[in-house]
Write a protein that binds this DNA or RNA. Structure first.
Length: 712
DNA sequence: AGCACGCCGACT
DNA sequence: GTCGGCGTGCTC
């Protein structure tokens, strides 16, 4: 179909197209929308990403561009269009129905691919090209990576509009700062090299194992400054608002005021959009924020940084659940910029980046690590058995002694597992998990009565006996933060006890002696460092039936322990856990990278992620079976299961994304070797799209998730 | 998701 | 004949 020249009936070029299609059927159809309205002379067709759920995965819809919108209807702008079956009702010359909905103008083209008649753009909401070519490319790559829809990813990437913020004018960006000296980066092998490469416009990729202590935030700020010095922009993503504030302060100190933006979801809509616009318009060249900031439209990006990639906050909680580390990897590759993954600990994925050669390792020499880390002492089962005091007081005497001694010189941190995090009960003697006799689900102690019951089927267990060794005693009672605080308060009556947890998080504590009871992730920073830390109930953190249990436990211990003074300054950590366990040994030796490398080797042997790529397909048994039959998987794909999905998480809480109440779902895992991840995602997306298209004839939905988080 | 279209049975 | 059931398919 060719474009008509606009001579006699110029205003109606596209209407002619309509007529040629319609001629056979309807006598005449000239929609009111176009009557008298001229169309844009150049590129009169707009491709629009319509924001309308998952119904049409990644399809663009074409609209005619009226002349008066020609100038503003540029790629990337938000538009409003009529959409819906009602707009097809043109027989009597009326064009009604089909409400106005939002969308993004993706591109302008000369000719429509769509064979039918086009409707006109109703409105350009604002001329701000929020979804420009770069961001479109990134969001599409993320959607492809996760077998998700482009519209879903765009929703994560572009914050809601706020007109007042848009009307503001933004000052031009300040001149680049001078290149920094390496400073405390000199403590790391290849640290100075990294800063030098950033400052001179290079694009190094590094996995950085940070030394314990609070310096990491300043070190990130220094890396950002180096990237800015090269005339480029920089982006830092941290897991929590609290850490964002810390890096924010470090950036302020390094760059001075007004040189960077803080992008967090907790700011109000107006502020959030204003900051985002300041970045988009190039007024601000450095950004720190929480996970949504991973899409921040930084101009001429020179460096992306992700801090503590093991923190679960880095997984978005909206479909398709992209992970900050993965998205920033994509950005580093697409925008040819530097990539810095920093952590006190080390994930298997980070180890994999180094192992594969994609990134280089930046770490301190052993003796530097030993000097900076606290001394770590373990209390294992044998110690506990010999320790009658521990029985009575629920705290081993080593811990008492260390705490008493440390309280002379400063605060002591006590880390206790969060309630609800605590997993299944285990046999006192052989530590085998206690399982339900009927369904093999995890046994739990009922909160109110203390009675034993299955976390899956609810069956009560009156007379448990270990299936492995015949033992009849269970180890269980994890003491909650409040109870621990009370007991410690009685034991040290002269010392103030403070708690930091879910409901109230303390940011800092002073150098004065105090007992600080905290759940993981909520540990306050102590000025000058804690004199000691007690990591209680270590076994509970390790008992989770999760592939990541060891890595996660180590990460939490290291995070808490790194707030403690160095060994030289007398800092001590006591951990109540078996000294033979791998993560415990890694803590004692302060070797998170070694731990991750060993875990990685195990995963490779079992063909588990990240050495393979996995996707989960869940739904009713029939839906999963139908889906698996229809999907055209790559030849090297392997299907595991399906198996029933428990609708409660360990601990009894309804897990997010659980099947609708009353339905019992199944889940299959699909696994492919490295290199076939893209093909897998593509196949899943195709099958899902085909399914959506005829979701009417009683077709039940399936949920597809690439990189499922809870493989156990 | 809505909403219209279309191909079947009960009605004025 | 025609009104209206809901199963099917489309939305530029």
């Amino acid at each position: 179909m060719s474009r008509q020249d606009d001579s006699a009936d110029g205003p109606e070029q596209l209407a002619l197209i309509r007529e040629s299609v319609r001629k056979a059927k309807a006598p005449k159809a000239k929609p009111r929308t176009w009557r008298g309205a001229a169309l844009a002379k150049e590129l009169p067709v707009a491709r629009v990403l319509v924001d309308k759920g998952v119904l049409h995965l990644d399809r663009y819809f074409e609209y005619a561009v009226p002349q008066e919108l020609d100038a503003e209807a540029q790629p990337g702008v938000r538009v409003r269009v009529r959409f819906g079956a009602g707009s097809k009702n043109v027989r009597d010359g009326r064009r009604e129905g089909g409400g106005l909905i939002d969308g993004f103008l993706v591109e302008r083209v000369a000719e429509a691919e769509y064979q039918g008649p086009l409707a006109a753009l109703a409105q350009v909401v604002s001329p701000e090209p929020v979804l420009d070519a770069e961001l479109l490319g990134l969001t599409r790559a993320v959607a492809d990576r996760y077998a998700g829809s482009l519209a879903d990813v765009v929703q994560l990437a572009v914050p809601p509009r706020h007109a007042r913020a848009e009307a503001r004018t933004f000052p031009p960006a300040a001149e680049p700062p001078a290149a920094p000296e390496p400073g405390s980066w000199a403590r790391y092998e290849r640290g100075a090299e990294l800063i030098g490469a950033l400052a001179s416009g290079g694009a190094p990729r590094a996995v950085w194992t940070a030394l314990p202590g609070p310096e990491w935030a300043g070190e990130i700020a220094l890396a950002v400054r180096a990237a800015l010095a090269s005339g480029r922009g920089a982006l830092v993503v941290v897991p929590t608002v609290r850490l964002a504030a810390r890096v924010d302060a470090a950036l302020e100190a390094e760059l001075g005021p007004g040189r960077h933006a803080l992008l967090t979801a907790d700011a109000g809509q107006q502020k959030r959009y204003a900051e985002w616009l300041a970045v988009r318009r190039g007024s601000v060249r450095a950004v720190v924020g929480t996970r949504a900031a991973m899409f921040a439209p930084v101009r001429d990006l020179g460096l992306v940084v992700v801090w503590d990639d093991g923190d679960a906050h880095h997984s978005d909680d909206h479909a398709p659940f992209p992970h900050v580390r993965e998205v920033l990897e994509l950005r580093a590759a697409r925008e040819r910029c530097a990539f810095l993954l920093g952590s006190l600990s080390c994930t298997v994925e980070a180890a994999q980046l180094v192992r594969s050669g994609w990134a280089g390792a930046v770490a301190a020499p052993r003796d530097e690590v030993r000097r900076a880390a606290p001394r770590v002492r373990t209390v294992g089962d044998q110690d506990l058995a010999r320790d009658e005091a521990a029985r009575a007081a629920r705290l081993p005497s080593v811990a008492w002694d260390v705490a008493r001694e440390a309280l002379r010189s400063g605060p002591v941190l006590i880390q206790v597992p969060r309630r609800g995090y605590v997993p299944r009960l285990a046999c006192q003697t052989c530590r085998a998990p206690a399982r339900c006799r009927r369904c093999a689900g995890p046994l739990e102690a009922r909160e109110a009565s203390g009675a034993l019951a299955c976390g899956w089927c609810g069956r009560e267990e009156g007379a448990w006996q270990c299936a492995e060794c015949g033992g009849v005693r269970l180890r269980a009672q994890v003491v909650g933060a409040r109870r621990t605080a009370e007991e410690l308060g009685r034991a040290f009556p002269a010392v103030p006890v403070r708690t930091s947890g879910r409901e109230q998080v303390l940011d800092t504590v002073s150098t004065a002696p105090a007992l600080v009871v905290s759940t993981p992730g909520a540990e306050p920073v102590a000025e000058g460092g804690y004199a000691a830390a007690l990591l209680l109930d270590g076994w509970a953190m390790l008992g989770r039936p999760d592939l990541r249990a060891g890595e996660e436990a180590l990460r939490r211990w290291i995070t808490a322990s790194s707030l403690v003074r160095s060994q030289e300054a007398g800092g001590t950590v006591v951990i109540v856990a078996e000294p033979t366990l791998r993560p415990v040994q890694a803590l004692v030796r302060w070797d998170p990278t070694g731990h991750a490398l060993r875990e990685l080797a195990d995963r490779a042997e079992l063909a588990f992620p990240p050495v393979s790529r996995m996707a989960a397909v869940s739904g009713t048994p029939r839906a999963v079976a139908d889906f698996l039959r229809a999907v055209e998987l790559p030849g090297d794909a392997e299907v595991l299961g399906p198996v029933p999905v428990p609708d409660t998480a360990p601990g009894g809480a309804r897990r997010p994304g659980a099947p609708p109440p009353g339905e019992h779902w199944q889940r299959a895992l699909v696994r492919v070797p490295p290199g076939s991840g893209t093909a897998l995602a593509h196949a899943l997306k195709q099958a899902q799209a085909a399914r959506m298209a005829r979701t009417r004839g009683g077709v039940e939905p399936v949920r597809v998730r690439v990189d499922p988080p809870d493989i156990g």
